[in-house]
């Protein structure tokens, strides 16, 4: 068998006194969609940010496609070309249009000429259903549209892996659907995604595996049917039932 696309091996991370990740290990194969759930402050964002090294780990190893990417001599910018990221609060470049957001990386990182980058940029905006908003600035877009541009921006770099950090939690409820729709399409296309999200509908239908993180440890890891219907750990069950109640009103 070939290497897994992403592997975390005994990853530790602390901020000062606070231990945020305590020996996290898991693997995912190309084409997998893994959804990470867990209480606020459990280290989900930190774990994602360690993968593209926006945050540096203390110990352990992370492998992308068989290469260790946590070595000191790894070129982080090279790594980030291969790992796209979608942020909770979008972080669209406020001075650039939707198209400008998508093409900046193509031009400045991939060194593409302007015309080719534009062409590619349009394709990716099309992919998220926003080619008609190419010339709008972020402030002129709705939250859902912003996040779809954020996804197109990450897709444009043609990454091996896409990271999503709570992509819908800053959105008004009625705008969540359009973003989840796009993510479902990407999953169906076989794009490898590591998603922090509490959108249970998406998790049930699109996830290959669910990872339950609590206090910096993976408490449970398995296919959605098993984790949702028949959680092994008591804490998983508690967390899931709390999640149900809080989401009931929606």
């Amino acid at each position: 068998m070939s290497d897994p696309l992403l592997a975390l091996d005994d990853v530790y991370k602390s901020y000062g006194e606070e231990q945020v990740l305590s020996g996290v290990s898991f693997e995912m194969d190309a084409g997998d969609v893994d959804v990470v759930i867990g209480p606020s402050g459990s280290g989900k964002s930190t774990m994602l940010r360690c993968v593209n090294r926006l945050t540096e780990i203390d110990s352990g190893d992370i492998y992308l496609d068989g290469d260790c990417v946590t070595d000191a001599d790894t070129d982080v910018n090279e790594l980030r070309k291969q790992v796209g990221m979608v942020f909770q609060d979008f972080n669209l470049f406020a001075h650039l249009t939707a198209l400008g957001n998508v093409t900046l990386g193509l031009r400045k990182v991939r060194g593409m000429d302007k015309a080719t980058a534009r062409e590619r940029g349009y394709e990716h905006l099309e992919q998220v259903g926003l080619s008609d908003q190419a010339d709008s600035y972020p402030a002129e877009l709705s939250g859902g549209q912003k996040q779809r541009v954020g996804i197109a921006r990450a897709l444009a770099m043609d990454p091996k892996l896409l990271l999503f950090d709570e992509p819908t939690s800053a959105l008004d409820p009625e705008l969540v659907g359009e973003v989840v729709e796009v993510m479902r399409d990407l999953a169906a296309e076989g794009i490898t995604m590591l998603v922090v999200s509490h959108e249970m509908g998406f998790a049930r239908s699109a996830a290959s595996d669910i990872i339950f993180l609590d206090e910096g440890r993976i408490v449970e890891h398995g296919p959605p049917e098993q984790l949702f219907e028949n959680p092994q750990a008591a804490r998983t069950g508690e967390f899931l039932s709390r999640l149900e109640t809080t989401h009931e009103g929606e």
Binding site: N77, E78, L79, F87, N91, A154
Partner: peptide, 15 residues
């Protein structure tokens, strides 16, 4: 300028 702007720039591979 919000901090997330530079983070997002780093995330697409800009130095």
């Amino acid at each position: 300028v919000p901090e997330g702007q530079l983070t997002a720039a780093r995330a697409i591979g800009l130095s």
